[in-house]
Nucleic acid binder design. Sequence first.
DNA 1: TGTAATACCTATTCATTCAAGGTATTGTGA
DNA 2: TCACAATACCTTGAATGAATAGGTATTACA
Lengths: 114, 114
Amino acid sequence: MAQSNPPFMSGVPELLLLRLLDQREMYGYELVRSIRNVTDEAISLGEGVIYPALHALERNGALKSRRKPVGGRTRVYYGLTAKGRKRLARLSEDWRRIQSGIETALETPVNASA
Amino acid sequence: MAQSNPPFMSGVPELLLLRLLDQREMYGYELVRSIRNVTDEAISLGEGVIYPALHALERNGALKSRRKPVGGRTRVYYGLTAKGRKRLARLSEDWRRIQSGIETALETPVNASA
DNA sequence: TGTAATACCTATTCATTCAAGGTATTGTGA
DNA sequence: TCACAATACCTTGAATGAATAGGTATTACA
């Protein structure tokens, strides 16, 4: 069963990819492992999520890729474009808005009457 | 255009509804306004999101409803069931996990080398 | 020699958010 | 009293995009 639209995950792969690639060039397989690390194991995204996401981001101009042979194997490295940086800024802002909205809601005192 | 899967919104309507209804019974139209308030205007959900979400939650046993005539008009009030409370606990936990994962990722120092 | 790890990829599923509509009643103010 | 806003419920249709489950090929290693 393809558990789609899993709670709270929409937009997350894109945000994390852009964020990581804003720091340095990386390749897909590396990003998969990296996401587990930088989120302290809280978020784990499979290759079936990462590769399509990378392709979509490149297609719409947020990323540029270059193939780089490393030890007989070929890696595809991705880096941010100016558009990608803008997109990252926008997404970060969106995230913070939602995040603080939910935090406010969850922190509302539970029934002072009880 | 049905701007679907907007960044970071998956699961959010469900979480907010359960959270609000955990405090007191409310009806749909009231919840729409309430969500804007408790999220400090950060999140606004239309009736086209709220009503289907309420129906789905009731269908799967997280909510129970009762019709209550108020001034000639009929309101449908919703309240949490035990299952709904369990669901809320689970969703809150999920949220906190994702939230802290992303926070960790976003806070990672930007390229100490630069 | 065979299995794990690396490294890339695609097809399909499907849940759900959203915009845009619709109905009917009550309140209001001109 | 006429019209319009607000209240209160609802459904349809479209689009998205994350996840699962596959697949290929190479290198490392035991």
